[in-house]
Write a protein that binds this DNA or RNA. Structure first.
Lengths: 211, 211
DNA sequence: TAGATTGTTAATCGATTAACAATC
DNA sequence: TAGATTGTTAATCGATTAACAATC
């Protein structure tokens, strides 16, 4: 059947992003149906996990056939908010911040980069694609006037919390934190961490102690 | 007491990277001792989790005082392999690949970028810091001759597996996957995913359904 | 029809938290 | 000493997997 209404655990949401990617690839390959077993094999999961996960979204498969690609894509797009345009700002115009502001995958998925900011006066005015780097003082105005919902924090660790605080005070709804720092935010503001350096340390550990 | 020898669960390893970051910040602030309670508050955990986690590393705290910063840093550096130099290549010279190749945080943590590669002939030869982009054909030689252990995959999703296969065939020990694709690798090769676009989708979901 | 695949319940597994004796 | 904090065991909680009746 499939339920809806209740909150979906983050462990499940993480996998839903992967199902969406795979389902979109299948749709582009003009595949019409996919079974839990096929999805599981492609993504390195069990079919049981796939069926459990999909029971959290409001969409049903059909016995002996599996899930219709177009319907499954539609419901995953909905639940992951990819059908919405998300106005987004990047704070930090270093290598990483500039790369993210230019990342095509973001605009392609509905994340509209409205501005890139840096506290370094030497960086202010520098062009990043069609945008020019702005000073931090302009951040609250841009967030307020352009209805910006998401802030991407790409600054050094020791500046991350104060940047987060400024974004929150400006009325942001969610933060994507790329720094290694832990960001404290009130309950109404969502924070997701994406720490590439931490992932590299995990990998170094896995290599060092692999058997 | 503290154990060693047994494999550490990845859930724990993820947090060890955060303890290391925090402990290094404390050491720079010339703090000498930290308790499980203090670490827990800073990182948004329970003190029980911190003590459980630290029981996986070969280091003991002291009652009524906590953990010595210098010793704790040393053992975390060891277990996360930060005391080693990791020769690393980046595959994909798009915005993200170039940014990672230039990311100071990497070299700072012992990840030595030995090369950046792209399949697009127009990108070959372009300078990225002190490196010039090389063609894919040169990848196996560089990996073999320079004892490269880590490959960072920053290519479009549909090229990710074949890039992974080439790196594996060249003798890589671990892959950091930034694409949304699922990478299949033999047991001896570690794979860690760091998907910034997926994190952004998780954030969009959290904002859309927040209460 | 026969049988492959779903949705869901129950069982297992693993991770987190609570509790507390040991101890500095 | 008194009491704060560790290390560890036991309890709880949540996530994954197995199993299977329902069904197309």
């Amino acid at each position: 059947m499939a339920n809806s209404g209740k909150a979906i655990p983050t462990s499940v949401v993480k996998r839903l992003t992967r199902y969406l990617t795979e389902v979109q690839a299948l749709r582009e390959a003009e595949v019409e149906w996919v079974s839990s077993q096929e999805l599981a094999e492609t993504l390195g999961l069990t079919s049981s996990t796939v069926r459990q996960d999909l029971s959290h979204v409001d969409f049903s498969g059909i016995s002996r056939r599996g899930y219709r690609i177009d319907g499954l894509e539609r419901v995953l797009v909905d639940v992951l908010g990819v059908d919405t345009t998300w106005n987004t700002v990047v704070v930090g115009a270093g290598n990483l911040g500039r790369a993210l502001a230019l990342h095509h995958e973001f605009s392609h998925r509905g994340f509209n980069i409205c501005g890139i900011f840096d506290s370094d006066p030497k960086k202010v005015g520098v062009k990043v694609g069609r945008l020019a780097v702005k000073g931090m003082r302009e951040l609250p105005t841009v967030v307020g006037e352009q209805n910006v919902q998401i802030g991407i924090i790409a600054v050094p660790d020791d500046a991350a919390q104060s940047v987060g605080d400024l974004l929150i005070a400006s009325g942001i709804h969610g933060l994507l934190n790329l720094s290694l720092a832990h960001i404290v935010a009130p309950a109404g503001v969502a924070v997701t961490d994406s720490r590439v350096v931490a992932s590299l340390l995990e990998l170094a550990h896995a290599i060092k102690y692999r058997r």
